[in-house]
Simulated scan of single mutants.
Amino acid sequence: MFGYSSTTAPARSIPRQVFLDPGARALYSEWQTVAAQRVAPLRVPAGHHHDDRALTSLVGELSLKSEDFGRLWADHQVKECAYGVKRVQHPVAGLLVCTPEPGPETAARLTPPASWASSPAR
């Protein structure tokens, strides 16, 4: 199962989840795009903090365990975190957009059904 609740605190890293959790490819309908959006922002702190052991360890782990990460890291793309769209396949709500486009149609799709209030917590 994909998600923070199924991992220990040290493993709770979005890049680690995207590249190492098999459920990530099912969660993100555009996984390749999301993966690229997780690598490019890592280069910003990596360039400013060469001695950051946690970041060095994360990049090393992902490079060893994920061919996709290694390929994207070798591309040397550098971008800030605040870009792109991530579409998530939510197990109950279906498609959930992290930053929805404005408008009544989007608002209606993101409003939880009243029946969820009576459903047990998942």
Rank of each mutant, 00 (worst) to 15 (best):
L64P: 04
Q89H: 05
E67Y: 07
H90L: 03
C81E: 13
A82E: 07
H49L: 10
D75V: 07
H90D: 04
L55K: 05
R71T: 14
A74G: 11
G94R: 03
Y83F: 13
D51K: 10
V92E: 07
G70V: 09
R53F: 05
L64V: 10
D75Q: 15
V78F: 06
D51I: 08
V78G: 01
A74Y: 09
P91K: 05
V78P: 02
D52C: 00
K79D: 12
Q77H: 13
H76N: 15
Q89F: 02
L95P: 03
H49W: 10
R87S: 02
S66N: 02
Y83R: 15
Q89P: 00
G84K: 04
Y83E: 13
C81S: 12
E67H: 10
V97C: 15
L72M: 07
L62K: 01
Y83H: 11
L96N: 04
H76E: 14
H90Q: 04
Q77D: 08
A82R: 09
R71F: 05
A82G: 08
G84F: 02
D52K: 01
H48K: 14
K86E: 13
L55T: 04
G60L: 05
H76Q: 15
V59W: 00
L62P: 02
S66M: 04
L64S: 15
V78S: 02
V59F: 00
T56Y: 07
G70I: 07
V88K: 06
D75E: 15
E80F: 12
H50F: 03
K79T: 14
G94A: 07
K65D: 06
S57G: 02
L96Y: 12
Q89S: 03
W73L: 02
F69C: 05
T56Q: 12
R71E: 10
D51Q: 12
A93L: 14
V88P: 01
D52G: 00
L95M: 09
C81V: 13
A93R: 11
L58T: 00
L95N: 09
A54D: 13
V97L: 15
